[in-house]
Amino acid sequence: MARTVEFDIEQAIERATSVFWEKGYNGASLRELTDAMKINSSSLYNTIGDKHELFVLCLKQYTHNRRISLQEQALQATSPLAAITDFINQVSIAVIQGVNGCLAIKTAFEVSPKDDLIKAILKADNEFTQTFLSSLIKAAIAQGEIGKDKDPDLLADYIISTYTGWYELHILYRDPRKITNLAQFMIRHLTQ
């Protein structure tokens, strides 16, 4: 009779996410993943599937958690512009303090060019962020916090594409001031 596999899948996925985040998809061995998850490889195969299926679950959970966090932060802001400013400041802090960078950005370069499923997950996450920022910008325009001459979709794309470059700068220079200055520059130019 087959043994029943019992473990907290959500917690195991969280632990596996940490390994993928640190080592990347290609750098994470199955042994490192199962050790972190505190399961054996047969339990992984019987409940989740292979390494790729595990990575898909990790990436989905990561992007889902990020969405919830963004929405909660926006609800706490005093105005749409304050929510955008908080978003930009939080990204700069994540870049500076994040040891492993952003899992989604790392994955975009490592895995997604050759994996349509991963690319679709990342594209959906990017589209969520773009829509999220664009709606805040539209609300800020409606309240007179940002000029009516601004294109909300273009500005949202600009914010996203700019902060992805901050990760590269921080990897190369490890200069927190550089990232903080770029964030403040972006914030100042929202209202000009």
Rank of each mutant, 00 (worst) to 15 (best):
R3M: 13
T4D: 03
E6V: 11
E6Q: 14
D8M: 09
I9L: 09
E10H: 11
E10N: 11
E10F: 06
A12C: 13
A12V: 08
I13Q: 04
R15H: 15
A16S: 11
T17K: 12
S18G: 15
E22L: 12
E22K: 15
Y25C: 10
N26D: 10
A28T: 11
A28R: 05
A28I: 09
S29R: 10
R31N: 06
E32H: 06
A36W: 08
A36M: 14
M37C: 05
M37T: 11
K38E: 15
Y45M: 11
T47D: 03
I48M: 05
D50G: 14
D50N: 15
H52T: 07
E53I: 04
L54T: 07
F55D: 03
V56H: 01
L57G: 07
Y62V: 03
Y62A: 07
R66F: 03
R67L: 05
I68N: 05
I68D: 04
L70A: 01
E72S: 14
Q76N: 13
A77V: 01
A77R: 04
A77S: 11
T78G: 14
L81D: 02
A82F: 06
D86C: 06
F87K: 01
I88M: 00
Q90T: 09
V91L: 04
A94R: 12
A94P: 05
V95G: 03
G98W: 12
C102A: 13
I105G: 02
K106M: 07
T107M: 11
T107H: 06
T107L: 09
T107I: 09
T107G: 09
A108E: 14
E110H: 08
E110F: 12
E110C: 08
S112C: 06
P113F: 12
P113L: 13
K114I: 09
D115M: 10
D115Q: 10
D115Y: 08
I118W: 07
I121R: 06
I121H: 07
L122D: 06
K123W: 06
A124K: 11
D125L: 00
N126I: 08
F128E: 00
Q130S: 14
T131H: 08
F132T: 00
F132V: 00
L136C: 05
I137T: 08
I137F: 03
A139V: 03
A139W: 01
A140M: 08
I141W: 02
G144I: 07
G144N: 13
E145V: 02
E145G: 02
E145D: 06
E145F: 01
I146P: 02
I146G: 01
I146W: 02
D149L: 04
D149N: 12
K150Q: 14
K150A: 09
L154W: 06
A156E: 03
A156M: 03
I159E: 00
I159D: 01
I160T: 04
S161W: 00
T162F: 01
T162R: 01
T162M: 04
Y163A: 02
T164M: 00
G165E: 03
W166M: 04
E168W: 10
L172C: 11
L172W: 09
R174C: 07
D175S: 12
D175L: 05
P176G: 11
R177F: 07
L182N: 01
A183G: 08
F185I: 00
F185D: 01
F185K: 01
R188I: 03
Q192K: 12
